[in-house]
């Protein structure tokens, strides 16, 4: 994998600018604030891709919120994985029983990871559980969900930036862009 030093050179097209993302995050924050007024909300961020979104979103929610982090293994992501099954790499640090949970995701494409996570979290008996994703790529969907909060529906392209990676790189781009094919074909 050959990565350009400025990262930006590997991006074919800026799909969402920093300003567009900020405006959308503010809008989502307002909606969530209104919808959860009077409730005890726990934001659960799914590492690593949703970190920037989580950090920005929580500061746009004008409610007392708790935050927690989870990480699950990805298919093909660990050569030493022996079980061949998805695993929780980092679990919640506090119980969510009886709480309203908002799962914060960077992108939903196939829905396979989200399907697993929702089943897992529902087993912990939260009062409610909803999903907030910055990006939705419905063309790739295998498992259908009602997505409660969606920032942008995006076309069927490989995107990086604002938390999204390719080979653990590009997460720190401030925008969301389409990766040049040369970047992942090299």
């Amino acid at each position: 994998m050959k990565v350009s030093q400025d990262l930006v050179s590997d991006v074919a097209e800026v799909l969402l600018t920093e300003e567009q993302i900020a405006a959308k995050v503010a809008e989502l924050g307002q909606r969530i604030t209104a919808d959860y007024a009077g409730h005890e909300l726990t934001l659960v961020s799914v590492l690593k891709g949703s970190l920037p979104f989580m950090a920005d979103l929580m500061r746009r929610i004008s409610l007392p919120v708790r935050i927690d982090l989870m990480e699950v293994s990805s298919y093909g992501g660990n050569a030493t994985e022996s079980s061949g099954l998805v695993r929780i790499l980092k679990d919640l640090s506090a119980p969510i029983e009886g709480r309203d949970v908002l799962l914060v995701e960077d992108i939903i494409d196939t829905g396979l990871t989200l399907n697993y996570l929702l089943r897992y979290l529902k087993g912990k008996n939260p009062r409610s559980i909803k999903v907030c994703s910055l990006l939705d790529k419905p063309a790739r969907r295998l498992v259908e969900f009602p997505l409660d909060y969606v920032g942008f529906e995006i076309p069927d392209a490989f995107v990086v930036g604002y938390g999204l990676d390719f080979g653990e790189v590009y997460r720190n781009l401030r925008f969301v862009g389409v990766l040049r094919p040369e970047a992942y074909e090299s």
């Binding site: 298919y75 061949g84 099954l85 998805v86 396979l112 990871t113 399907n115 697993y116 498992v143």
Partner: peptide
């Protein structure tokens, strides 16, 4: 294998 991995 992918479906197995995600327990579908």
């Amino acid at each position: 294998r992918i479906l197995d991995f995600y327990q579908v």
